[in-house]
Amino acid sequence: MDLWAMADRGTRRYWKTFGRRIDLDGKHSWLWAPVLTEAGGTVEDNWLQAEAERVGGWIDDGPEAGLLADIGALAGGGFDPGQLHPDVRDFYERTGLWRMEAWVQWAPVFALGGWFVSRFFGRRVGQLALPIRSLDTARGIDSRVERVAGADGGYRGAAWLRTSRATGEYIYSGFYRVSRLPGSEQPSVHVSFPLPLGNVQVFLRPEVGEGGALRLVSPPGAFGADGAYITVVEGDRCWAARIPIHEEFHVFADGANLLRTDHTLALGRATALRLHYLLLRD
């Protein structure tokens, strides 16, 4: 246990050294996201109640809870949500009514690294424990959505919590909302993954594809643009760095009118992981 604590401290020190100091109460407020305040804690859903208390609200776990209250909030900059396929819109606004099956394929050169991160970090902290083989998800993935409501009852964001049906272990614990980056006319899908004393955040640019498909892209770019970031939070001090992780989600209805998602994750210019989801409405 002490060795893992030392490794975690070393990782945080690395990002403090190579990141930049940021002001979450000022010019960098766009990088605010939930964190787990315990250095050695397990993420799972243990951050969620604290987030509801922070906004003076409560958790809404109704069966029709969606990742986004209204996908229309993404309108702007040439993106027209009205062009999306109705099932794509329904999935994001009523995610709790959908279940998923998943398949995974790692690029051989990244498979060992993916296994190490999943086995010795993801499963240990209950966050980002990505499957390594399709057999890891053969019995299915359980998914639940819990929305955070503010004191006025308004939507503040939604937690998407996914666990392995075979083992019950957490695979993924993400917080979804719509955010606008500094100087941008296009709102982004803002996904954050709480970690002990920090988080990983991804800002995804929406685009409409053929047949009303939705593409969400986190491309390369400068600090302050769509992409992936990591933060370290210690008391009232915070550091952040942009990281070379790039993702693309393609959510579409196929020829049989089934909703599917192709998810690609790249490190730099190299594709590391591909996932495919079949989405089924209950």
Rank of each mutant, 00 (worst) to 15 (best):
M6R: 13
V200L: 11
S29E: 06
A7V: 10
D70R: 00
G40Q: 12
E207S: 09
P81W: 00
H190S: 15
W98Y: 11
G72K: 06
A7K: 06
A228R: 01
L36T: 02
W58Y: 04
L195H: 09
V35I: 15
Q201H: 06
G41T: 01
L128C: 13
H250C: 01
G57K: 01
V217E: 06
E185P: 03
L259D: 02
V104I: 13
F79V: 00
D70A: 02
E101C: 13
R119P: 09
T95N: 05
V35D: 06
G57V: 00
P187W: 10
G157H: 04
Y229W: 02
L36W: 00
P206T: 03
R99P: 04
R99D: 11
F110E: 03
E234A: 09
L259W: 02
A272T: 06
F193L: 14
E53P: 04
A111G: 00
G174D: 14
S134T: 15
G77V: 06
R156H: 12
R147E: 04
A240N: 02
K16D: 04
A166Y: 11
E38L: 06
I243A: 00
G255F: 14
T137Q: 07
I71M: 10
A52T: 00
I132Y: 09
G255H: 14
Q186N: 04
W15Y: 14
E53I: 02
D2F: 11
P182E: 03
S143N: 07
A225K: 08
N199R: 10
E207F: 09
A151G: 12
I171F: 14
A149C: 08
E51I: 03
A266T: 10
W239E: 05
G168R: 08
R124D: 12
G77Q: 07
E247G: 12
R144Y: 03
V251W: 11
R133H: 15
L36Q: 00
A270P: 01
T37V: 15
L214R: 09
D152S: 14
L265H: 08
V109W: 12
Y14A: 04
A253P: 03
S218W: 07
G209C: 10
L24A: 09
A222P: 01
G140Q: 08
I59V: 09
D70C: 01
G76Y: 08
V125D: 13
R242G: 12
P219D: 02
Y277F: 15
G66H: 00
V117N: 13
V191H: 10
A256T: 08
E185W: 09
A166I: 11
R124S: 12
R139K: 14
P196F: 07
E210N: 12
L273W: 05
A270S: 12
Q186G: 07
T95P: 04
E146W: 10
L275W: 05
V191W: 13
G154F: 09
L280S: 15
R242W: 03
D25S: 15
I22P: 05
R94H: 15
P63I: 15
G157F: 02
H28K: 02
G66M: 01
L130T: 13
L135W: 14
G221C: 08
I141K: 07
V232I: 12
S173A: 14
G62E: 08
R139M: 12
T17A: 15
V35E: 05
A270R: 14
R124T: 14
I243H: 00
W47M: 05
G19Q: 00
T42L: 06
T17M: 11
C238S: 15
T137K: 05
G26N: 02
G56R: 01
E234T: 04
F91I: 05
G183D: 03
P63N: 13
K27G: 11
W4Y: 15
